[in-house]
């Protein structure tokens, strides 16, 4: 490793080139993937969104008509938007709140914590299709165990759950909350990371339970809350599988006829992604589905940016934020 100064000078450009090529080689899987599976499809979707495209014949240029249709002529679009907003507005805070609560409970016991943790965590790994079918049966208004229990408890007119438009979204919410385990685990780690001395100091000052949570616990878990908020909102916009399976089962149809039945009952489970699927793959309207997809992308971006912007006011990074 002993170079003369001259040799060093001569070799540097080549070493630099080699280094760059190494970096390029290391990055290449992602670069190819990004160009081929993300950037190109995104641009192509953008192009399709300005066409009529039925998958069976060539796309026909259609100007901004798809977007005009979306906002001025399509009644189902707004239903899908409302349903999606509903599930996000209720689902995300509930998920975060209950995750904190269960995680907090897990920090209490001196032994047995692992057993409880296993029980709370495992449902979040179960296949969504299997979970949806299980909950459809459990919440069946006629024969399902939940309503059987409720009627034993004296509720003679228990809800229709997935079969009624007023109760289908709350039922979907319960289904979702059963799987809060992975969020809970992150909060558990966050809670256990709060330095004990802070609590001891708060105890000495005579802080109440709420005050301890508000001024000690909360600030240290805000990064986790922020993370869950962002992922929850993004996931909420893409909510599909459970609603799809639930609707076709409630309507009693096969995947062959799924397009007319998704959203059942009464379009109460017609979420944005479900609607997009119905328009694109059910009704041969790939151009319109592409416009819906781009709109989804824009809204997701705006929401994420807004969350990031506000986060500066309430999220506390102990280590000074992203490295």
């Amino acid at each position: 490793m002993r170079f003369t100064v001259g040799a060093e000078r001569r070799r540097r450009p080549r070493r630099n080139l080699k280094r760059r090529l190494t970096i390029l080689a290391f990055m290449s899987p992602w670069i190819v993937g990004f160009l081929g599976f993300i950037l190109y499809p995104m641009l192509a979707t953008l192009y399709f969104s300005f066409t009529k495209y039925d998958l069976l014949s060539n796309p026909i240029p259609y100007g901004i008509q798809n977007y005009v249709y979306m906002f001025t002529k399509d009644p189902d679009f707004w239903i899908a938007v409302r349903n999606t907003v509903w599930i996000i507005v209720w689902g995300v805070p509930l998920q975060i709140g209950l995750s904190i609560l269960t995680a907090w409970m897990l920090t209490k016991p001196k032994r047995g914590m692992k057993v409880y943790r296993t029980i709370f965590f495992m449902p979040s790994l179960a296949p969504p299709v299997a979970v949806a079918l299980a909950f459809l049966f459990i919440f069946n208004p006629e024969t399902g165990p939940i309503n059987v229990l409720l009627s034993h408890l004296g509720w003679h007119d228990p809800p229709l759950w997935f079969y009624g438009r007023q109760w289908s979204k709350p039922a979907m919410l319960i289904l979702g909350l059963w799987g809060i385990g992975s969020t809970m685990i992150i909060f558990l780690a966050g809670l256990l990371d709060v330095p004990r001395q802070l609590y001891e100091a708060a105890d000495i000052e005579g802080a109440s339970g709420w005050q301890k949570f508000r001024y000690v616990t909360w600030p240290s878990i805000t990064p986790v809350v922020f993370f869950s908020l962002v992922t929850g909102v993004i996931y909420g916009f893409q909510f599909f599988t459970q609603a799809y399976v639930s609707s076709i089962t409630v309507a009693g149809v096969t995947t062959t006829q799924a397009a007319t039945s998704v959203g059942s009952p009464n379009r109460s489970l017609l979420f944005y992604s479900v609607y997009l699927w119905q328009q694109g793959w059910g009704n041969f309207r790939m151009g319109y589905a592409s416009a819906l997809a781009w709109m989804l992308f824009m809204v997701t971006m705006v929401c994420t940016i807004l969350l990031v912007k506000t986060s500066k006011r309430w999220v506390h990074y102990a280590g000074g934020g992203f490295r």
């Binding site: 599976f37 790939m286 592409s290 997809a293 989804l296």
Partner: peptide, 30 residues
Amino acid sequence: MRWRGRQAAFLLVLATLMLPFQVTVVPLYV
């Protein structure tokens, strides 16, 4: 590894995390 543009590349990776799969699915299908 340290290189110019690393931070930008990382942010791009992060950005694709929030990309809804619906945006890419039609052309991918094609």
